[in-house]
Design a protein around this nucleic acid. Structure first.
Lengths: 141, 141
DNA sequence: TTTAATTCCTATAATTTTGGTAGGTATTAT
DNA sequence: ATAATACCTACCAAAATTATAGGAATTAAA
């Protein structure tokens, strides 16, 4: 399951993308419309800014702006940023690798192979889920 | 990520399957070989027995036995038993459905569609990962 | 130059989940 | 009788999650 934090981050980004012509978008506006606790959202937006996914404008009429085009921002990036590894086991992650303590031989581990296949397809699916593709889906319906 | 509990459960089941001719297998033997805290493992095996995946034999020389054939026991069942829903959001689960509070229209939600596709492929992959297929993979290498 | 609205910063805290431990009782093969 | 096992109940510590509190710094506009 995605954490609430990740979910909030995705919703915030989709909201900004929908209101891309009204940028910068204030945290308070996002919080209200997406039903996210303001203070919690602030910390999320800060993380997104630190990751260079958003940039911000301070002061009155300030807010947040996308720092990349909506077709460059995908869910794999967001999920990794907030929830860490996408894979089901630490021994098959790219970025957070860790050996399973009890594993005798990683190379021939049958569970590992299954989990690796799942990671591969999931990562691909999350990568193809860009902000623009998400919006496109919503419009098409 | 899978919880340690789920991982322990999978390892225990694979271990029993590998020693299927020596059934029943004692919890203490599994704990030792798979490096799982005994008391914690006991609670896991109890859950597996309650779910009719294992059955048990009490008393001396007792232990646990598979209650279904190894090609009927798959990882989807195990993961669901211990970690709950496989999907990344509660609004796309079969068994643990819950509406996203902030969601305006579930039918047209673009995030939901992505997450549903991921769930579909992941569930399929986990279902095809039976205990026998896992053992087969290990032998082939 | 004041005001209002905003981002930004630091600290704290409640709640839930995870990953166990402790101590025993009941059962059964030998 | 004994030893090895499953089974049962209760508890618990650490970590992660999901926030809240209170302001400081910045900026556009009146």
């Amino acid at each position: 399951m995605l954490s609430k934090k990740t979910k909030y981050a995705i919703n915030a980004l989709v909201y900004i993308t929908k209101n891309i012509e009204k940028q910068p978008v204030a945290a308070s506006e996002i919080a209200e419309n997406q039903n996210i606790p303001l203070k919690f959202l602030e910390s999320i937006l800060t993380e997104l800014r630190n990751a260079r996914i958003l940039r911000s404008k301070k002061g009155k009429y300030g807010g947040y702006l996308l720092n990349e085009s909506p077709d460059k921002i995908n869910l794999a990036k967001i999920v990794r940023l907030f929830d860490g590894a996408i894979a089901l086991l630490p021994c098959v992650t790219y970025n957070y690798y860790e050996k399973c303590e009890e594993c005798i031989d990683e190379e021939t581990c049958g569970i590992r192979q299954v989990v690796m296949e799942i990671r591969n397809t999931t990562v691909q699916q999350l990568k193809s889920a860009t902000l623009s593709s998400i919006l496109e889906r919503e419009i098409k319906e």
